[in-house]
């Protein structure tokens, strides 16, 4: 399973991942840049400059090109996450169902806004301005790999409370 909380990126693992990505020609190599970055982002929770250099070398392109993608596509992070990662869906169904209250509560009670990590490093949140596509369960968050729907400010706080408990007792995920 992935480790969304890695603070450092083991470059040998990145090289190992790249060795699985093969391509027939330069064209296919370029098509796979995004895929390679997604694999690294999925595995470590973020992509470092050093990892981006390995991707560029492996796929025959420049690190500038790779970094241009990292900073354009919303899914990528270029800094480590907290121990847990929460996507707060702010799509239209979630907006109508009150996702703004969830975002406000995260800011007021836990001191985190979009893209930030709590002071204790337990939780990073990212507000999804697009849509996670599970609209029937709005308002919804994706915590690590799991979706939690039909949330209210209280149930969201319970969720975070349980998370903190699990993390502090050493049993994160």
């Amino acid at each position: 399973m992935s480790h969304p909380s890695s603070q450092t990126i083991d470059l040998d693992v990145v090289r190992e991942m790249m060795s699985h990505i093969t391509y027939a020609d330069h064209q296919e190599g370029q098509e796979l840049i995004l895929f390679a970055l997604q694999e690294i982002n999925e595995h470590f929770g973020w992509v470092s400059l050093e990892a981006a250099e390995i991707v560029a070398d492996h796929l025959g392109t420049t690190v500038n090109r790779v970094y241009a993608l990292l900073t354009f596509y919303a899914d990528f992070r270029t800094a480590p996450r907290g121990d847990n990662f929460m996507l707060v869906c702010h799509g239209m169904s979630c907006y109508v169902a009150g996702s703004m209250r969830l975002v406000q509560s995260l800011r007021d009670r836990h001191g985190v806004s979009d893209g930030e990590t709590t002071a204790d490093g337990a939780l990073t949140i990212q507000v999804v301005d697009g849509c996670l596509g599970i609209c029937d369960r709005a308002p919804l968050v994706k915590l690590n790999q799991e979706f939690h729907g039909e949330l209210t400010v209280e149930t969201l706080n319970d969720l975070i409370g349980r998370l903190r408990l699990a993390t502090s007792s050493g049993g994160a995920r």
């Binding site: 992935s2 969304p4 991942m17 699985h20 990505i21 093969t22 997604q38 694999e39 982002n41 999925e42 595995h43 929770g45 919303a74 899914d75 990662f85 996507l87 990212q126 999804v128 994706k142 690590n144 790999q145």
Partner: peptide
């Protein structure tokens, strides 16, 4: 965002 697709291409 996490995608959950496997490491290998196939």
């Amino acid at each position: 965002m996490t995608h959950g697709h496997p490491l290998t291409l196939t």
